[in-house]
């Protein structure tokens, strides 16, 4: 299940929901992304996250579907927030259940790596110098590329 929302999410509640649905699975892996209060040059007070409504949901569902084709998974949950988020707020949640931990670990990492390079979200940071759009990072591209053909 995927959700794009302005509101914060409760990690504990999301984990319990996964656990309840993870029928006989032996592993649950969760990842939570937070707003950093710095970038490579200066401090960051908040970020504004823009998205392409409709396309975002379509790509997040595609990522879930691709993960389920690659690994034997039970539940897959993605939450991504939009709007203005202050430093240290939660941005993104990924939760995966599987019979075995290796599949769950790998699938969670795959989902985040592909999300960061294909899901249409854009971040604008507010810093002491003003606002600026976050640029694509080569390290994110490299992280996503390692799954192609793997």
């Amino acid at each position: 299940m995927i959700t794009v929302q302005q509101e914060d999410f409760d990690h504990g509640r999301e984990y319990e929901a996964l656990r309840e649905l993870a029928n006989r699975d032996g592993a649950i892996v969760t990842f939570t992304g937070l707003v950093r209060d710095f970038n490579s040059q200066c401090s960051v007070s908040n970020v504004v996250i823009e998205h392409y409504s409709g396309m975002t949901e379509k790509y997040l569902m595609q990522i879930c579907s691709d993960a389920k084709k690659r690994w034997n998974l039970g539940q897959v949950r993605i939450i991504h927030r939009i709007g203005t988020l202050e430093a240290f707020e939660q941005i993104v949640f990924v939760g995966v259940s599987s019979k075995h931990r290796q599949n769950a670990f790998e699938a969670a990492q795959f989902i985040m790596d592909i999300l960061k390079t294909t899901a249409p979200f854009w971040k604008q940071e507010t810093t002491a110098k003003g606002t600026q759009w976050v640029k694509r990072k080569d390290s994110d591209e490299a992280a996503a590329a390692k799954w192609s053909g793997a």
């Binding site: 996250i49 998205h51 396309m55 379509k58 993104v92 985040m112 759009w133 640029k135 694509r136």
Partner: peptide
Amino acid sequence: NMTLCGKDAVINSGDELAFFPPVTGG
């Protein structure tokens, strides 16, 4: 129509196009 494509893609009347920079979510 909400699918990434190349610049050689043919457009049909009624389509929705979008132009955007590389994505930076997560």
